[in-house]
């Protein structure tokens, strides 16, 4: 008890100067940033760089066993990229993925807005039950969805709907996996929305439909676009849920399934080339949608 009175805080014996504190801050930031960059490089960046480089035909001879890319003997073969991309089957797969994903993301953006509206503005029995459905596609592993779909909508369908080896089967699976995105981006905006503006519009004589069209929908465009981008990116790369119902025929081979098939034949260069294109498509759409969403948001704020 007595000693505690005499105890002085460590700081007062040597108060850290502003400069030493700033130095510590810089050192800690650089150390943490460096560690994190190394970690990111190992698990994501280097592999993706290797994929793009291999895709466009750069192949190193690494038999020297060196870690350093500068020590490797590099060969370039851009025509391999052109051949891999130019194959009709590759184009068909990429195109199928793109239009199916656009369609599924569009349907789910509209349905997502309706679902979010019902969850936020409506009150009825069983609402919580309905809401619990929205997150299931997030939590349920894709292959579980795949196995259930191939049985539910396959040749032995208990509900007599056979979508096996048809684009509609892929479409249903994509609708399932991309369901939560738009709901979860639109819902918080609806919750935060100021009801006064709607009431004001109503008092000024606007019909409920007019209020929806001129007040509610414009503020939902930005989150809807963001949700659309996420849903599209998810769909265009989707594999687990559609790998079984597609059935392994050329007509229903999506881009990711096509890449997987190439790896099964050890055609890594081709797999890397198609991966590069698919990567480009999903990154373009995702950043485009995010950018449009942000600019729309800013314009409305003005």
């Amino acid at each position: 008890m007595v000693t505690s009175v005499n105890e002085t805080p460590a700081v007062s014996t040597s108060p850290p100067t502003v400069r030493s504190r700033r130095l510590r801050r810089v050192v800690s930031t650089v150390t943490a940033g460096g560690l994190l960059s190394t970690y990111l490089s190992i698990i994501v960046i280097l592999p993706v760089v290797a994929t793009i480089a291999t895709g466009v035909g750069a192949s190193p001879d690494t038999t020297s066993g060196s870690w350093w890319p500068g020590d490797w003997v590099w060969h370039s073969n851009f025509s391999a990229f052109v051949d891999a991309i130019g194959a009709p089957a590759a184009w068909h797969a990429i195109w199928l993925s793109v239009w199916l994903s656009l369609l599924a993301a569009s349907v789910n953006t509209v349905m997502g807005a309706l679902i979010a509206w019902v969850l936020v503005r409506d009150r009825f029995r069983g609402q919580k039950f309905i809401e619990s459905f929205v997150d299931i596609p997030f939590a349920l592993p894709t292959i579980v969805a795949g196995v259930v779909f191939i049985y539910l909508y396959g040749p032995a369908s208990p509900v007599h709907v056979n979508l096996f080896e048809a684009w509609t089967g892929l479409f249903v699976a994509l609708l399932f996996v991309s369901l939560p995105f738009s709901v979860r981006t639109i819902q918080p905006v609806l919750v935060a929305m100021d009801r006064d503006v709607e009431h004001a519009a109503r008092t000024l004589g606007a019909s409920p439909w007019r209020v929806t069209r001129s007040v509610i929908i414009p503020s939902l465009v930005s989150p809807a676009l963001a949700g659309f981008g996420l849903a599209f990116a998810r769909c265009v790369g989707e594999f687990g849920s559609i790998s079984l119902i597609g059935g392994g025929i050329a007509r229903t081979t999506t881009a990711s399934t096509y890449i997987y098939n190439l790896t099964q034949g050890f055609l890594w260069q081709g797999a890397a080339a198609v991966s590069t294109i698919l990567l480009l498509i999903s990154v373009t759409v995702l950043t485009g949608a995010t950018w449009f969403a942000a600019s729309f948001h800013d314009r409305r704020a003005l």
């Binding site: 994501v44 890594w268 890397a272 990567l279 999903s282």
Partner: peptide, 15 residues
């Protein structure tokens, strides 16, 4: 998030 899991797999093999 933006990349297909299949591409992640391919990229790890290529690295």
């Amino acid at each position: 998030v933006a990349v297909s899991p299949v591409i992640i797999g391919v990229s790890l093999v290529l690295a």
